[in-house]
């Protein structure tokens, strides 16, 4: 374990350089380059605001008189969900995409998830900056509880990395997983209160949704940004535990599968 950390540390330059290369090549390929990674979620949020705005803006608790509440609520949820789904979908194919490197070169395998996590984090930070900019243009100033965003991001990242790597390892052997996960992610988006508030749902269904860990993480984002309130600490500690367990499990599964991954790729 100590050896693993040390050898990964030796490769820190490679990890940072890979993240840079990824961004630079996006800008080489298209004029707006990395900005597309921000434009996508923002446009999606704008579409929801346009179509569902009239319907849902009055339904947010305690925000009946705030015209801007719904777009802000949408952006907060988008910020959290976007990180989660990006990390999961990139982890899902991380070993398959890097088959050539894995087959030909020796380097600590831990570099690959770290590169995914690093570049997803940078994307998310850019998205956050863009959202804050939009808020300022709209004349909305978030409160002090915004400081919880880094913590939420960390837990979100841990959970998505853990789940993503378990799925990514299995996907090398069972490729159907690569097809199923995007569908599950799409369902997950609608089973998490991002475009709607949970209070519009019947009591029983709302209770069911609370079993979804992302329910609490997204709620944390919405609290921090829109309601200026802390996240639910009980829920968050349970989710942190889930994130740690899934990270540990992904590590164990990868260890077991490691010697066979290259054989199969």
């Amino acid at each position: 374990m100590q050896g693993l950390v040390l050898s990964t540390w030796r490769y820190r330059y490679f990890i940072v350089s890979s993240i840079k290369v990824e961004f630079r090549s996006r800008f080489i390929r298209s004029r707006l380059g990395g900005l597309w990674m921000i434009i996508h979620p923002l446009v999606q949020a704008a579409i929801f605001a346009l179509i569902l705005g009239q319907l849902l803006s009055g339904r947010l608790p305690d925000m009946a008189d705030n015209r801007l509440a719904y777009p802000i609520y949408l952006l907060a949820g988008t910020l959290g969900w976007n990180l989660f789904s990006e990390v999961i979908s990139r982890c899902l194919t991380v070993f398959i995409d890097n088959a050539n490197l894995l087959k030909k070169l020796v380097f600590p395998r831990t570099c690959l998830p770290l590169i995914v996590a690093g570049s997803a984090l940078v994307n998310n930070m850019l998205l956050f900056a863009a959202i804050v900019l939009i808020f300022l243009l709209l004349g909305f100033v978030p409160g002090v509880h915004l400081v919880w965003i880094p913590l939420l991001t960390l837990i979100n990242l841990g959970l998505s990395l853990g789940l993503g790597l378990i799925l990514g390892t299995l996907n090398v052997f069972i490729r159907d997983i690569g097809q199923i996960v995007p569908i599950v992610l799409q369902l997950g988006f609608w089973f998490t209160p991002i475009v709607y508030a949970p209070n519009i749902l019947p009591e029983r269904i709302a209770r069911l949704l609370q079993l979804n860990p992302m329910y609490w993480i997204i709620q944390g984002y919405q609290n921090a940004i829109l309601y200026n309130a802390p996240p639910s600490w009980t829920a968050l500690s349970v989710i942190s535990a889930i994130a740690v367990v899934s990270l540990g499990l992904s590590f164990v599964i990868f260890r077991r599968a490691n010697s066979e991954i290259v054989d199969v790729l």
Binding site: F14, S17, S18, V21, S25, L101
Partner: peptide, 16 residues
């Protein structure tokens, strides 16, 4: 898409 120099940095990084 990168220059020889940039690739040298990147692949030497890959060698650790």
């Amino acid at each position: 898409e990168f220059t020889g120099r940039q690739n040298v940095y990147h692949s030497a990084g890959l060698m650790g």
